[in-house]
Simulated scan of single mutants.
Amino acid sequence: MHTIHWPADYLPGTTENFVSNEVIVADLSVAEVWPLLNDTRAWPTYYANASNIHFHDGSGPELSSGARFRFTTFGFPVEGQVNEHVAPVEGQPARLAWHGWVEGDETSRLDVHHAWLLEDLPGGRLRILTQETQKGRPAAELARTRPNPMLNGHQAWLDGLIDAARARRR
């Protein structure tokens, strides 16, 4: 199975916080799920923790390489820029990643790299992996919080994405 491509400054284990969520499900494909992840208008319909999505550069609502956007998640107003955007191609995983940040001083600044990997597996299965590394004091506080809000929040995003893709079939 494939792995996330990490920028050197965000390599897991070298930042204040890291979370990893993965699902493997039967009877769905990357082609069915990708549109729901790539089109930010869909996010709030299946993931309650994403709101106020806006694009700065006139692009959107679909994500694309270099697109600048902002959204609210986990109570943070996150600015983001897509730095990896590989749409589905037969035999290769789809990839989506952005650098996100919350402006502030050394006590409130947050920097993240959030990445997604979607791949079709043998036997009609779909694998979705999403991982995020975070830097800054808010990241360190999130890492110590139990239950882990990032782990649980990203699982809700994955579960909602799968449920929405299945609902579109009906």
Rank of each mutant, 00 (worst) to 15 (best):
V30Y: 00
A31T: 03
A31V: 02
E32N: 05
W34P: 06
L36R: 01
D39S: 05
R41H: 12
W43P: 03
Y47F: 15
A48K: 05
S51M: 04
I53A: 09
I53E: 05
H54T: 13
S59A: 12
S59Y: 03
P61Y: 06
S64N: 07
R68G: 08
R68Y: 15
F69P: 04
F69A: 08
P77C: 07
P77V: 10
V78Q: 09
V78F: 15
E79A: 15
E79D: 14
E79S: 15
V82A: 02
H85G: 11
H85V: 08
P88S: 08
V89T: 13
E90P: 11
G91H: 04
A97K: 03
H99I: 11
E103N: 14
D105I: 05
E106P: 07
T107R: 12
V112E: 09
A115N: 07
W116K: 02
D120M: 07
D120F: 13
D120H: 11
L121R: 11
P122R: 06
G123V: 11
R125F: 12
L126V: 10
R127H: 07
T130P: 06
Q131A: 09
T133V: 00
K135Y: 09
R137M: 13
R137Y: 12
L142K: 00
R146N: 07
R146Q: 13
P147M: 01
N148S: 14
P149A: 06
L151E: 10
G153P: 10
W157T: 02
W157K: 00
L161S: 07
D163V: 14
A164D: 11
